[in-house]
């Protein structure tokens, strides 16, 4: 009997035997992970286990102490300033709190990377920024606002608009739905799927929110005890016999029930 399922796409990001420590605290030990081109991979795990560290290593904001992190075959830790700049032009990062520059308008926030990486003039940057905010469902008038005047959900969407302005191949989302109400959680989840569909990007989402993970993911990687003991589809995860996976699912379900019940 031959296997008719399509071969998995080539990895765009790879972790090979990665070790990462902060002082006495080891976050990763001999950790392996692959992110395939075009997929949405969600990294889940408990708080403080190093989910965001994983994303930061992908664009060289943090370096691995051992092993290799590769983006398109290039070892991130071996890149000089120019190499990192190229990687960061292709891999965008949406920070947990948005990390919008307080002193700049939304237009300048979105135009920041365009000014860094391109020779676009003010008019072209404005047009691009308008297209980006419209793509994330915000009106044009928001371009002249300061981040402090926006709601939490709007700030997240502006951060999303800023990340897509340079037309990246990969988008890294760090806890995109944390701190949002259910309506905005659904909106951001839909936005992730829409960008995936329309821009054909690879997405890596870090979250501890199981419903979001199930909704947006092609595959889920569960971080536990410094490694990823489970990587597979949401369906496979749901039916996984592994104790740590079952514990995590039941724990997050109880958390979700408590949140909705409150």
């Amino acid at each position: 009997m031959s296997d008719t399922s399509p071969a998995p796409a080539a990895p765009v990001i790879e972790f090979l035997g990665v070790t990462k420590t902060f002082g006495d605290h080891t976050v990763y030990e001999d950790m392996d992970l692959q992110v395939r081109r075009g997929e949405t991979l969600t990294i889940i795990g408990g708080s403080g286990q190093g989910k965001s560290v994983c994303l930061k290593m992908m664009i060289g904001l943090l370096q691995a102490d051992g092993g290799q992190v590769k983006v398109d075959g290039n070892v991130v830790g071996e890149q000089g300033p120019e190499g990192l700049r190229t990687i960061r032009q292709r891999v965008a990062y949406v920070f947990q709190g948005g990390a919008l520059f307080d002193s700049m308008t939304v237009l300048d926030n979105i135009g920041y990377a365009l000014r860094e990486h391109t020779d676009m003039g003010d008019e072209a940057i404005y047009d691009k920024a308008r297209a980006c905010v419209e793509m994330v469902g915000l009106p044009e008038r928001v371009l002249q606002s300061l981040p402090a005047s926006l709601s939490g959900g709007m700030r997240k969407r502006v951060a999303l608009a800023r990340s897509i302005a340079i037309e990246p191949e990969v988008i890294l989302y760090d806890e995109p739905t944390t701190g949002l109400d259910p309506k905005n959680i659904n909106r951001i989840s839909a936005m992730i799927m829409k960008l995936q569909r329309e821009l054909d990007v690879t997405s890596v989402v870090v979250t501890h929110d199981m419903p979001t993970a199930r909704k947006v993911s092609d595959r889920i990687a569960m971080l536990y005890e410094k490694q990823f003991p489970f990587v597979g589809s949401a369906e496979e995860m749901w039916h996984s016999p592994k104790r740590e996976v079952r514990d995590f699912i039941h724990g997050t379900l109880r958390e979700a029930e408590a949140r909705h019940g409150a």
Binding site: L61, R88, Y93, F95, G97, A99, F101, D102, A113, I166
Partner: peptide, 14 residues
């Protein structure tokens, strides 16, 4: 503390 310095780096600037 609000990760804006990381954001500068992530957007390709030094």
């Amino acid at each position: 503390v609000t990760e804006q310095i990381d954001a500068v780096a992530a957007l390709g600037a030094d």
